[in-house]
Design a protein around this nucleic acid. Structure first.
Lengths: 254, 254
DNA sequence: GCGATTCTAATCGTATACGCTCATTGCGCG
DNA sequence: CGCGCAATGAGCGTATACGATTAGAATCGC
């Protein structure tokens, strides 16, 4: 429970560290969509002042993970079905571009490493961990394109939808199919067949997008219902987004 | 000279307003590449405190306009030739995507408006103003795709390279060619020929990229030389990026 | 004379404190 | 009884002040 506080504050600035922590929490689903993120809570939670918290939020807003409305606070950005489709469309456009430039530069060492990643992923059962490995696989696949801004943009998009991927993997195990598609992409890369590799990457991503979209529509409705119910109790609770902070405050009244 | 201070602080937050001002200044070329942006100077210049300045810088960093190194301050992001090429590659990928989705939704009113923009651009001689109109043309062309994140990303990329476009237009008048290409794209859109429209858009952007690249390599060398010379005088001047703030500080020592 | 080291100054990063905006609750009016 | 408006309160945004870190310069030792 204190792991956030104990985490190596390796990032040079507190703001960057906070941003990383919040990013992780959002991706892990610990903060659900639409969740309010009061600055005071953040400050108190992480034992710092508001300023670095504000900067972290600005940074995350740029990544599209939080919505920041002036004078009305920050909320975890909610992803609608069309938005997910949009992000995947952008991912296809950018990742095929990256792959196109990367295929030429992929060394045999890179290929071995990627193969190794697939093997590791084979045994990974935890959706969150698998999704992290998946992100790493894609990142390493594109890295040789030598386009830092492009890689950053791809990374950002990936993080934006990672929550959905995790939620999706949690119930329906897409692992099998994804593993197979990863192998196909890798094989095409090994043969330096750019056209084939990019086509298979497109199909891979498009399929993921379709599956998540199918999941998202009913899920959104369900979440809305939960939200409805929770908001009724919201006022009674002290810390909105923290799990069991020993809610021994504001209990009385009765 | 006080126009920044007089500008309607329409943006709800001071940080957003500052970011907009700085963005404009960078695009206009008033702040050259690699220029240091000390927080205190910013605060004094705009008559505010450091905090909104910091947030503005964080925001601009996210847009790729400034580089922000912890404990070492902010500098205007320098664009190398490969970076420009990279950004244009991303633009082609994303803008063709946007156009593909927009062509279907383009109304006749949109087409009329776009035609009007081209006409206005015909008579515009000022490179900066033309570049703004150019940005608007592209933005309006893609707007009907109904993908807000994609449009934001495109806008951000466009702003990133706008400085180069302005610098390019200033000496070599690319207007003619661009105007022609815009008309071709628009004609294809009118015929709902998605393939043709996207292809011509690609060529349009690729050509711009090539031209800027040709310009940039010698320009970079020249700028480096200027930088070299300026840095020799840098210590004597009080305000690095402000013109004539009566530098009467730290003169002595002799 | 040259290099490593310590000292200093400048600047960044963060904490505390205050003014202001916006949402909500209670009241009065139609 | 429902709707619009004013007062209250919580939370955001910004200014001031201080501690921390880094780059540069003078000094000391070799």
């Amino acid at each position: 429970m204190l792991d956030e506080a104990l985490t190596q504050r390796s990032a040079s600035s507190t703001a960057a560290w906070l941003a990383a922590e919040l990013r992780r929490a959002i991706v892990r689903g610990e903060l659900h969509d639409g969740q309010a993120l009061p600055q005071d809570e953040l400050a108190a939670r992480f034992g710092v002042s508001k300023i670095p918290g504000r900067e972290a939020l600005v940074q995350l807003q740029a990544e599209g993970l939080v919505t920041l409305i002036p004078h009305r606070g920050a909320t975890v950005a909610a992803l609608s079905a069309p938005e997910v489709a949009e992000i995947y469309a952008m991912r296809i456009a950018l990742e095929t571009l990256a792959l196109r430039h990367a295929v030429t530069n992929l060394t045999s060492a890179d290929l071995v490493r990627l193969e190794g990643l697939i093997t590791i992923m084979e045994d990974e059962r935890d959706p969150l961990a698998w999704s992290e490995l998946n992100r790493e696989f894609h990142a390493r696949l594109y890295a040789p394109c030598r386009m830092p801004r492009l890689l950053d943009a791809i990374q950002s998009l990936h993080v934006s939808v990672q929550r959905c991927v995790v939620a999706y993997l949690t119930q329906s195990n897409h692992h099998r199919e994804a593993q197979h598609q990863h192998r196909l992409i890798l094989r095409a890369c090994r043969r330096r067949d750019v056209a084939l590799a990019t086509r298979q990457l497109s199909e891979h991503l498009q399929q993921a997008a379709d599956n998540i979209a199918k999941l998202l529509t009913p899920l959104a409705l369900k979440k809305a219902a939960i939200r409805e119910r929770e908001e009724a109790h919201a006022r009674a609770r002290a810390n909105p987004y923290l799990r069991a902070n020993s809610g021994h405050r504001a209990r009385g009244r009765r």
